[in-house]
Amino acid sequence: MPLVSDTFRSIAADVLSDNWGTLTRHRFSLRRRDGTWDDQTREVYDRGHGAACLLHDTQADTLLLTRQFRLPMQVSGQDPYLIEVPAGLLDGAAPADRMRAELMEETGYTVGPLEHVTDLITSPGSVTEYLACFVGTYRRDNQVGAGGGDATEGEDIEVIHMPFDDALAQVRDGRIRDAKTVVLIQELALRRLIAPAD
């Protein structure tokens, strides 16, 4: 982050918490469109960047998804068991390499080529994270491990093979609400919509 620019001037940065991620309170001055400077205070959470991937079995027309407990949803009074695409933090690895490791850890599946779709910014108002989003294909016989996540990190991940039409319906009616998952399912739906006729 530049300390001084044409529109931004940092005043102070105070670390409030440095456990799993880093929560910092920033005081800064921001130049408004009318040219005046406005002093502001915001908190920013930095937990690193991540990767996410939607895998599609083209023969069975199913998607490889997961379901797991998410504490923030429990705290906010929502259903805490979210349906999601496999995802994880990069921890210094290249996004595609980390995604392959995460797929094995969460689902037990190995995959062929992964196609990078976009780098998705999930919550720009308070979180620094971006997610490198991928799509790829899988087959049921590609499973070589148990999956389920890393139990030492408290993970207990259910693997789901969901028909594409069911997944799209769940996006539409709100049963699938995780942003990265919604975006990647809609990406597949758009590809089908604009695919040339055979």
Rank of each mutant, 00 (worst) to 15 (best):
P2C: 04
P2F: 12
V4M: 10
T7N: 11
R9F: 03
S10E: 14
D14A: 12
S17T: 13
S17Y: 08
T22S: 10
H26A: 08
R27K: 14
R32E: 15
R32P: 02
R33F: 12
D38Y: 11
D38W: 14
D39N: 14
D39M: 09
T41G: 05
T41H: 06
R42D: 10
E43H: 10
V44D: 02
H49A: 10
H49V: 05
A51S: 15
H56Y: 12
D61S: 13
T62H: 14
L65Y: 01
L65P: 03
R70F: 15
P72Q: 07
Q78P: 01
D79H: 08
D79K: 06
L82E: 11
A87L: 10
G88H: 06
L89K: 08
D91A: 12
G92T: 03
G92C: 04
A93M: 13
A94Y: 01
P95C: 02
A96R: 02
D97Q: 12
A101G: 06
E102V: 15
E102I: 15
E106F: 06
G112N: 08
L114W: 01
T118A: 13
D119A: 13
S123F: 12
P124R: 07
G125Q: 11
S126F: 14
V127K: 07
T128P: 01
A132L: 00
T137G: 12
R139D: 08
V144P: 01
G145V: 07
G145T: 08
G145Q: 06
A146P: 11
G148N: 06
G149C: 07
G149Q: 07
E155K: 09
D156C: 13
I157T: 11
E158G: 04
E158T: 11
P163H: 04
P163Q: 04
F164I: 06
A167D: 00
Q170Y: 09
D173V: 00
D173P: 00
R177N: 11
L184W: 02
L184T: 04
I185W: 00
Q186L: 11
Q186G: 02
E187H: 14
L190V: 11
L190W: 13
R191A: 01
L193H: 14
L193K: 14
A195L: 05
P196H: 08
A197V: 13
D198S: 14
